[in-house]
Design a binder for these strands. Sequence first.
DNA 1: TTCCATGCAAACACTTTGCACCGTG
DNA 2: CACGGTGCAAAGTGTTTGCATGGAA
Lengths: 139, 139
Amino acid sequence: MSDDLRSKLRGSGYRLTPQRELILQAVERLGHATPDEVLAEVRTTSSAVNVSTVYRTLEVLEQLGLVRHAHLSDRAPTYHSVTDHEHFHLVCRNCQRVVSVDAHVADGLVARLGEELGFVPDLGHLTVFGRCSDCEDTP
Amino acid sequence: MSDDLRSKLRGSGYRLTPQRELILQAVERLGHATPDEVLAEVRTTSSAVNVSTVYRTLEVLEQLGLVRHAHLSDRAPTYHSVTDHEHFHLVCRNCQRVVSVDAHVADGLVARLGEELGFVPDLGHLTVFGRCSDCEDTP
DNA sequence: TTCCATGCAAACACTTTGCACCGTG
DNA sequence: CACGGTGCAAAGTGTTTGCATGGAA
């Protein structure tokens, strides 16, 4: 099960450690979580892990393409494991609800930015703030 | 010249102070600037202003619709004065270059999000990370 | 004269770093 | 047994807050 992790790590000259396994599993379990939340989750599951290890590990895992991060608030970033299909995030400024949207919804925009500006967007990191249908009225 | 500022402030029960004028002018002069850069700019122009005043003032100016902020890096947010036409930002992860794009370029996406999800995006706050044409090759 | 705004300093939230020790490969 | 990884503690950014003083209206 952690053979995928092991091989990805080794392929880039990294080692497989229990901390790295635990942190990846925590991210997978949590969905969208800040470094702090990941730390808390790991600690419930097993022995203690240090904050700095969490930060360093999330960085490594992101380099390997196993997790990604997005900025869903003005506070800490949130990490999520990389799944089959790419998606971006909508965040309601009123109720803070987060919705994941398939990247294809932005195909038109991606095409325009590519053609007109030669810009290749990284949708997986994109967060669109706004107002959801439930909150259209609320001030 | 600061009559617009004065009336907007007073209209919301705020007062016009020299600091508020200076900070707005600094933002207008700088284009995209972090709170720290705004502070530095104000200080070159005139007497000292305090950091907290910069933060508090930028918040007020944003409420009044005179400035907006976007997250152009993983560091501090940048503020810019609100101009006639709404725009969003592209940031190249490789060369850090920032390009402002007219909001209409995203009309298609806005329509889809509205129809399919009832979500009204705030494009003025949107930042799209990716890779610009000059950096397509660079690793 | 009334409050809102400011300055200051301390606290806060989040992240990074240096170094000695630990443990994978 | 070498070298990358970890823990720890301290320092680094960026931002907020409480409180006394100052100044706009």
